[in-house]
Structure formats: C-alpha cells, structure tokens
C-alpha cells in the first residue's frame, strides 16, 4: 500500500496561499528529499502533514496508509505512526526528556492496543535507542530541549524519532545549522532507521545532507508546487545550478505541466 499520497494540495495561511497544487507519492521503504528555496512552502508542507491547525487546506487530499490524514488531530496522526522532526524543537522546562518520551510512547502503544511499557523495560529500550544517535545520557534526564545546543536539539529529535518508531518520518530542515559531526550523527541515525516498512520525507535547504542520507527520490519545490522530480542526481544539479532556472520556468508558466527531465 502507498504510504503517503498527496493530490493537488492547496494550503492557505491567513490570506495567503502557500501551497498551490502539490502532488507527492511516497512508498514504504523510500526516502524522499524535498528541496527548495526559502518561502517555497517546504516547512508549511511538513506542518500540514503533522496537523498544525492554523493552516487551512482549501483543496486536495492527503492519504496516509490509505486513510484520510487531514481528518485526524495531530496526536492521532502521531499515534498512527507519523512523526515530524521540528525545525525549531521547543524547550519544555521541568518535563524530563526521558519521562516525556515514556508518556508519549505509552500513548502511542495504548492507541495500538499494546500494553504500556513499565519503567524498567522502557529504560532498557531507550538505552538501546540512545546509542543510535550517540546521545549523551545526561540529555536523557534533562528537561526536554532545555539548554540544549542547536545540534543537541536536532539530535534529540532523531532520538525521539527512534524511540517512537514511526512508519512515516518527516524531517523539517533537521540539517540546518549543524556542523559536520552533528550532521553525520543525525544522518547515521536516520540511515540506521531506514527499513522496508518505514518511509522518510527529508525537507532540506542544502544538498549537503543528501551526501549522507542518500534519497530514492528528490523533488524541487518552487512557489508551493513540486516542479521537478528525479533521482539523487537532481540534488547535485540543484546544488550546482541553484533554483533560478526552475523559478524562471515557473514564471514562464510551464512549470505545472513540465515533464520531469
């Protein structure tokens, strides 16, 4: 079954249309990269998928594992196996990272009819996941993201991802602002979580990440639409040529119907 199928999606924020007829199909096991310049609507796409309510979907549909995704509340999407790694993870003082994750995982397990994990089982489970993202144990007991460096916050997002074990993970510019060591750790974490049952949508501004997470498909997003799709070589082409050639093509009015390469 298709993991994610977006058809002719139109999204407004307040009075402005941000996404203007977007199509995207993702199958289990695939890694899709969505690239584009600032303001192209990449992050809006990520937030709409996760269910942020100030975005208004005016047209189109999104099916996730065959179900109508847009009907679900954000927490229901999460419990159904959708995960969004935030571009700017939120600091939550006083709420311990590890206990928060336990509450989140148990909410998901309960939804799936599984038994809640007790503290002992959860700790050994979490320790195993921590090694995936080379998380320092001290970050486990600290409040969620509080006082974390930029790199630690992003790594914590991948850590949450690994613990919550989603079927579809959307990474919203998880690579932005990372030094090369942190980037490699994040990429290694994602690579280790790749599996035939799981799909990734990796939203990024920079091609660099894709040297470490090799995508199956690359999409170029301009002005609220995917205007070019291809294999990993498209990322290199975008890196070399920038987006101007695509923006010109959109401006010339041919983008929507242009055949890919």
């Amino acid at each position: 079954m298709t993991m994610l199928e977006i058809k002719n999606l139109h999204v407004r924020v307040e009075d402005q249309e941000i996404i203007k007829g977007l199509d995207l199909t993702v199958n289990p096991g695939e890694v899709h990269a969505v690239m584009g310049p600032n303001g192209s609507g990449k992050s809006t796409l990520a937030q709409v998928l996760a269910g942020k309510d100030e975005y208004e979907v005016t047209e189109g549909e999104v099916r996730y594992k065959g179900e109508e995704l847009l009907e679900l509340a954000p927490e229901e999407r999460a419990r159904e196996g959708l995960f969004l790694a935030f571009q700017y993870p939120v600091e939550i003082p006083g709420v311990s990272n590890v206990y928060f994750l336990k509450a989140a995982l148990n909410a998901i397990r309960k939804h799936r009819g599984q038994e809640e994990m007790d503290a002992m089982d959860f700790l050994s489970y979490v320790r195993e996941k921590m090694s995936v993202v080379k998380m320092d144990e001290s970050l486990l007991n600290r409040p969620v993201n509080e006082g974390f460096s930029g790199g630690e916050k992003k790594r914590n997002e991948i850590f949450h991802l690994s613990v919550l074990d989603p079927t579809l993970a959307v990474l919203d510019e998880t690579d932005s602002g990372l030094d090369i060591d942190a980037l490699k750790i994040v990429a290694d974490g994602v690579n280790s979580l790749r599996s035939p049952d799981r799909a990734f949508v990796v939203i990024t501004h920079y091609q660099r990440l894709l040297n470490y997470i090799v995508p199956d498909k690359v999409h170029a997003m301009i002005d609220g639409r995917i205007v070019e799709s291809g294999g990993k070589e498209l990322a290199h082409e975008l890196e070399e040529k920038g987006y101007a050639w695509l923006e010109e093509r959109v401006a010339a009015g041919e983008a929507a119907s242009a055949p890919s390469s």
């Binding site: 269910g51 942020k52 309510d53 509340a73 927490e75 999460a78 995960f83 919550l164």
Partner: peptide
C-alpha cells in the same frame, strides 16, 4: 503542537 505531534493528547 510540538507535544501533540509526539502523540500526547491536547
């Protein structure tokens, strides 16, 4: 929204 996106109810 961040917390809900992790599966925690509103």
């Amino acid at each position: 929204f961040y917390l809900r996106s992790r599966g925690i109810g509103e």
